[in-house]
Each structure stands twice: as structure tokens, then as C-alpha cells.
Design a binder for these strands. Structure first.
Lengths: 212, 212
DNA sequence: ATAGGCAGTACCCGAATGGGTAATAGAATA
DNA sequence: TATTCTATTACCCATTCGGGTACTGCCTAT
């Protein structure tokens, strides 16, 4: 089994050279390209199909976030890891949405960089501990049903509404009358500070009162 | 610095005993409690304040997902790790939303369980590689408006609907008549394979046709 | 025991919604 | 050029929805 092919995009000269030194013989990877910008992106991912790519985000011309999208369109099988100083939600989630398979920060030790690349090439999803925390927080910072003082019954009914049930269907599902459903939904709308079903659904999903 | 206190909740007798053996002297943790169900939850997290907790999800009486919520309300500083066979989105995300700080699967090797607990006690967010993948996928699996062949106009109108606008308000915002709005929404419902506004809103948000 | 919160029921009424059908004009495309 | 796609307007009609109000139990907490 040959070594995984790896391409590197990093505009900081010194850091790139350090990484080049790190990723030689001993590393277990074959560094087949190392670039200071994304001008050759089409060429690199057109003529060849590297197994792995490590991208800096803050690059001249095009950001790594835009690049990962292009790379994934050209070579869906190439596994891409972001390697950056940025730890803000915006960049993290955009990178992931655009197809990044890993996200490590630049304060990562050389040994851990190698480990992350190994994990990446094995189909894993390496990320710095701080990034993992951010991602968990992202799910948690939802306001939750309890914050709106919805009763259990109301939560049930809201969930059914979100899942596309009409008032009539909800009544049947809950074995209550249509009028009771109406009453509950009226209360729900009041509690959520909305005034129609569509708005309630949007709020329920955005605030994660009902699982997405 | 003393060892972190750890409590364990696992209903499988044999597995619990194995874990008890694993978490002795050498492990670096002080196992201060080990339970087969959550009946003593109030007591454990009322009288004492363990630093760490490891929870099975499928437990008699109460699930670990409900338990983590209660634990976090009582002892917000206690770091909680799920330890389970379940790898479905629903359970993973509910656990995280309820406050879990880590999520590892039961096929994890003893050594890696110890490492995960160490990471947990250091404020990290240990998770099995498969879980990390699932979470990344969760962000990516946006199907986008283009997948539903929505026209730009339809996307605009859907966005307004999701943001709580009534048909009438949409008509005013778009400077078109109410009938035209109706027509567009009818087309949208057809394309999204739904048959009412609430369902369309749910689909738009879940499929990320409209940003959450 | 008694007040308040919650679930359920019931009724009325007007407005909003969803489905069907049809027609026109401009833009894009074949 | 002919055809398709898109946006637009229009009408009809049945159903659903949202708001208001009022009453009955049940359970909990004061």
C-alpha cells in the first residue's frame, strides 16, 4: 500500500517550509504539492487526484473556505482538512458546510498534525479540542422548550405541527377533539410570541424546541 | 491535585464490573459511584458533586439522555460523557442538546475510554470518530434550494414564508398581488412534495433551503 | 380547602389558506 | 423562429386556521 498523496496550501512561506520538512519520508505521507495560493487549484485537482489536502483559510485571492467547496466538487473523494488560526463559529461552520473533513488550529503540535492527517486519511474527522467544544456548544445554545414554558402536551402538539400534521390529524393522533387542538395551539402561539403556524414551526426549529 | 471523581451509570452488570475494574488505582480516576439505574440520581448529584459522569443511554426507567439534562441542572460543572451503542442522529443530537460533553461508542477500547475520560476531565470533548463524522455530516447534508428546482422568485417567497410573513405580507413585500403569491406557493408546495405552509417551512429549514 | 395551572370541550365568526383552472407577456432556449 | 419556462394576474370554492369567550374536571401547591 502506497503512501497517501497530500497537497498543501499555505501562504506563509516559513510555515509552509516547516510543514514541508515535517511531511517528508518519515511522516508516512507523500507531499505531491505545496502552494502559496489557490491559482493552480484547477490544475492540481484536474490533472491529479490527491488523497488529502490541507488548507489554510486566510489566503491571497481566494479563501480556503471557498477552495474546499471547489475541491469537493472536483474530487469528492479527496479528504480536506482546514489548518488555520481562525476559531470563530462563522468560519468553522462555513468550512464544514462546504465539505471540510477536519479542522485543526495552527497551535497544534507537529506530532498532532501528523496524527490528524493519519486520522483524516483513515476516514476520520480530526479536529482540535477547541473546535469540538464549539461544535457541541452550537447544539446546546438552543433555547429549548423549557425556556418557553411549554407544557408536555403543548410540546407534543407542536412537534406534530412541525412534522406536517394538520389540526385535524393532530386531533386524531392525540385522541382529542379539533377544538382542543386549536386551544393548545393558540396557547403555544402566545407562548412563542408568534401568531401563526408557519411562524411557530420556524421558531420551533430555529430554537430547537423540536429536533431538526 | 487529587484524582477526578467519577460516577458510572451502566445497567449491564458484566460491562459495569469490567468498567469498575478498568477504573481503579492505575486509571487516574476515583470511581465514587457505580449504578445500574438512575434511581439514586438525586442523591448522587445532590449530596455529592462528582467531577465526571459516564452514562449509558439505554437504561431501565429513565434514559441517559433525560439523565444528562437533570445532572447538568443540578451540577453544571460536572462533565458528562455518553457511553452507548447508539449511533443514530436523534440520540446523538438530543444528548448533546441536553448537555453531554462527550459521546463515545461502546466498541471503544479500554485504553481509549481512559483517554476519553482524561480529555473530558481536562475540559475537552471526546467523541468516537464515527460520531465526529455524523456531526460534520449534519452540517453538510444541506440539500440546498437548487436540489428542488425552485426558481429565484420561489426561493424569495419561501424565505418570506419561513420568516413568518402571511400571504398578504408577502404580496406587499414583493409588490405582487395576493393571487400571484398563492400561485407561487402552490408551485413551491408541489416541488417540495408538501401540501401546506407549515410543512414547507419545516422542510425548508431542515433541508436548509432557507438559512436557519 | 382553595386557588391556580393544565387538559379538555364547545361554540361562533371572519380571515387565511390550498386547490383547481385559465390566460398573458417576456425571457430563455432549442 | 418556435417552444418552453417564468412571472404574473385572475376567479371560484371548500377547508383550514386563528382569535375570542366560557365551562368542566383534575391535580398540585399554598
Amino acid at each position: 500500500m502506497s503512501k497517501p498523496n497530500l497537497v498543501l496550501f499555505e501562504d506563509n512561506e516559513r510555515l509552509r517550509q516547516s510543514l514541508e520538512l515535517l511531511l517528508t519520508d518519515m511522516s508516512g505521507f507523500e507531499l505531491v504539492g505545496s502552494y502559496g495560493d489557490f491559482t493552480l487549484l484547477d490544475e492540481v485537482f484536474g490533472k491529479t487526484s490527491p488523497n488529502l489536502a490541507m488548507l489554510d483559510i486566510d489566503m491571497p485571492g481566494m479563501t480556503g473556505i471557498a477552495a474546499v467547496k471547489i475541491i469537493k466538487e472536483r474530487c469528492p473523494l479527496c479528504r480536506v482538512m482546514m489548518f488555520t488560526v481562525f476559531d470563530d463559529d462563522e468560519r468553522i461552520f462555513q468550512s464544514i458546510c462546504n465539505g471540510a473533513d477536519g479542522y485543526i488550529l495552527k497551535n497544534t503540535s507537529p506530532l498532532k498534525i501528523i496524527k490528524a492527517l493519519q486520522e483524516l486519511s483513515e476516514g476520520g474527522t480530526p479536529m482540535s479540542p477547541f473546535i469540538a467544544q464549539k461544535i457541541f456548544q452550537h447544539f446546546r445554545q438552543s433555547s429549548k422548550a423549557s425556556d418557553h414554558n411549554l407544557t408536555l402536551r403543548e410540546q407534543d402538539i407542536l412537534k406534530l405541527l412541525v412534522n406536517g400534521h394538520s389540526y385535524k390529524m393532530i386531533a386524531a393522533d392525540c385522541h382529542i377533539t379539533l377544538d382542543t387542538v386549536k386551544k393548545h395551539l393558540k396557547n403555544i402561539y402566545t407562548k412563542l410570541h408568534v401568531n401563526c403556524g408557519t411562524e411557530a414551526v420556524a421558531k420551533a426549529l430555529r430554537d430547537r424546541i423540536v429536533p431538526i
